[in-house]
């Protein structure tokens, strides 16, 4: 499989978009970390990049890449090569390039200026979200019929996970505020990878606030060893399930 991924990677690197993305992340995070006199404020800005920009770029880039490499996929499918292998190679190629962009662009500045708990939580979440949204984007592209629909679908998904979902949660929490909602909030946070990642970072960044009220629940749950396992497990599910669904769809698809 790495044989094919190598060519996918090679193709991506030549387009220079990934390079531009890396440089963008690097400059933005470096200037934030250098300019802000207190690092917690810089981390806050980085948090926004990780939670908003990263998923968006992963989704859009992956979708565009999928349609741009349609010829390649077609060519490969006439070769003795299984569809699963083709799609997994594409996934590996795209995620390796997006991950390296993230770890070089944000990872290096964070390690230089903020190598603390919050920093590592940020890197973990960023890496996980990159993979999750690459996987979701593959599902979106395989499902949609053409490029425009694919990108539209991807943007819609981003809109949902980054914005609409939290609005719905707010609505639910207020509608049922008379009931005990501890378990529900845990469940709701697991159903959106962005929320899950955000809470994971918050455990380090806002540990004081999280100890109050129901926050203590998060601290007890996510902060414990099993909580970290839970977070990692759910993130893995978020990576594997869309990819699995994409492969299933792709295997049945006419090229």
């Amino acid at each position: 499989m790495m044989k094919l991924s190598k060519y996918v990677l090679y193709d991506i690197l030549r387009s220079k978009i990934i390079l531009a993305y890396t440089i963008f992340l690097f400059i933005v995070s470096l200037s934030m970390l250098q300019m802000e006199d207190n690092s917690s404020k810089a981390m806050l800005s980085l948090l926004n990049i990780v939670l908003i920009v990263l998923p968006l770029v992963s989704l859009v880039f992956t979708t565009i890449h999928y349609y741009n490499s349609y010829e390649f996929i077609e060519l490969m499918s006439s070769q003795p090569m299984s569809r699963t292998r083709i799609l997994l190679s594409e996934f590996a190629g795209v995620s390796i390039s997006l991950l390296s962009a993230f770890f070089i662009g944000i990872g290096i500045p964070v390690l230089l200026y903020a190598a603390n708990d919050t920093g590592f939580a940020l890197l973990f979440t960023g890496g996980a979200l990159t993979l999750v949204f690459t996987s979701i984007a593959f599902f979106a592209s395989v499902s949609a019929r053409d490029k425009a629909r694919g990108i539209g679908f991807a943007l819609l998904l981003w809109f949902y996970f980054a914005l609409i979902y939290d609005g719905l949660v707010l609505l639910i929490l207020f509608s049922f505020s008379d009931y005990p909602l501890e378990k529900l909030t845990l469940l709701l946070s697991a159903l959106n990878p962005i929320d899950l990642g955000r809470i994971f970072i918050m455990l380090k960044m806002d540990v004081s606030a999280l100890m109050g009220y129901t926050g203590a629940l998060y601290k007890d749950f996510f902060g414990s060893g099993s909580g970290i396992l839970f977070t990692t497990g759910i993130m893995l599910l978020w990576i594997i399930l869309p990819l699995w669904a994409a492969i299933r769809k792709f295997n049945k698809k006419d090229l």
Binding site: L163, S189, T214
Partner: peptide, 20 residues
Amino acid sequence: MIVEQNPYTLMLFRSFTVQL
């Protein structure tokens, strides 16, 4: 103010929606 009214909404802290 929202958190003061409904502590469960702390789960949304630092989310894009809340920032908006």
